[in-house]
Design a protein around this nucleic acid. Structure first.
Ligand SMILES: [Mn+2]
Ligand SMILES: [Mn+2]
Ligand SMILES: [Zn+2]
Ligand SMILES: [Zn+2]
Lengths: 147, 147
DNA sequence: TATTTATTTATAATCTTTACAATTAGTTTA
DNA sequence: TAAACTAATTGTAAAGATTATAAATAAATA
């Protein structure tokens, strides 16, 4: 079933005139199969077995291309490095204060908030972001150490 | 009137056993008078006239202290550097896609979202963050260039 | 096949933030 | 007040993530 998403994504890339290189394909495939919102470095490390000569710059380049085409979203939190999400459907995130885990979380879009923000601030609103923080179930059980 | 907030903040620091140095006082005062959620570097540059020998490390050190005491909140967005907000009351932010301006924006806390996130994900929720993005009134008028 | 263009690679550079050790300043005690 | 103690500042180095650059390579086109 993940095959379908991959093929659709490749189709999108082709339509945008972007070449499907082995490295690009691998980054895309890894993201599609990943549920953990990985960092650029995590992707790099995960693929270095298959592509021993791949540069970390290639990962960044491809993430940028995928983002520009709309296949990938970049998530920027306080912690140093960006995370990448190929689930571009509308959804929010819950983040563990302890281990950093990021979990998808569906909720009806907060349109009223956007509308009110527009009224109050005079902004022409395009979108919003929301994250809920807390302790994940795993970290609740044990008194787990940080990270 | 800003005097009052400054004195209260200084009182909080004293109670925490933190020394009130001239540099610390200046950083705090600058933040209290600033409406623009400045970066560490902006604070550093703003104070270099008054403290020509101050190190940028001092700014970071003091921001850390002020944060730990609860007088300052750190805002982390996608753009490289953190921003600092000494308005610790509950409020959200609206951010301009074009010029990066950050505007306070009051709205009743989204408790229902937190409650549902708890139910759905099993997290023990502590807090959430929300930002609304769009084009600010100034940038709507003119076809202003980025940044 | 020859040519053109996009992509990759390797590496250097940039930028923000933190770490560290020495110096200075503030506080406490005698 | 002087001495002793502790916290804070300074200057600089180091870390870590990301971007820039130029040469090499691969893909696409003619
Ligand atoms: Mn997600
Ligand atoms: Mn604010
Ligand atoms: Zn956790
Ligand atoms: Zn603007």
């Amino acid at each position: 079933m993940s095959e379908k998403r991959l093929n659709q994504a490749i189709e999108t890339l082709k339509e945008s005139g972007v070449r499907i290189t082995p490295q690009r394909h691998a980054v895309l495939e890894y993201l599609l199969n990943s549920m953990v919102h990985p960092t650029a470095d995590e992707i790099y490390k995960a693929l270095e077995g298959k592509f021993p000569n791949m540069s970390v710059a290639t990962v960044y380049n491809n993430l940028k291309v995928l983002r520009e085409v709309g296949l990938v979203r970049e998530l920027t939190y306080g912690d140093s490095s960006s995370r990448f999400d190929c689930n571009t459907s509308d959804h929010y995130h819950t983040i563990c204060n302890n281990c950093g885990k990021i979990v998808d979380f569906h909720y009806p879009p907060l349109n009223e908030v956007e509308a009110l923000a527009e009224q109050v601030t005079g902004f022409d609103v395009s979108h919003h972001r929301l994250e809920v923080y807390g302790t994940c179930p795993d970290c609740q059980k044990v008194g787990t150490k940080k990270h």
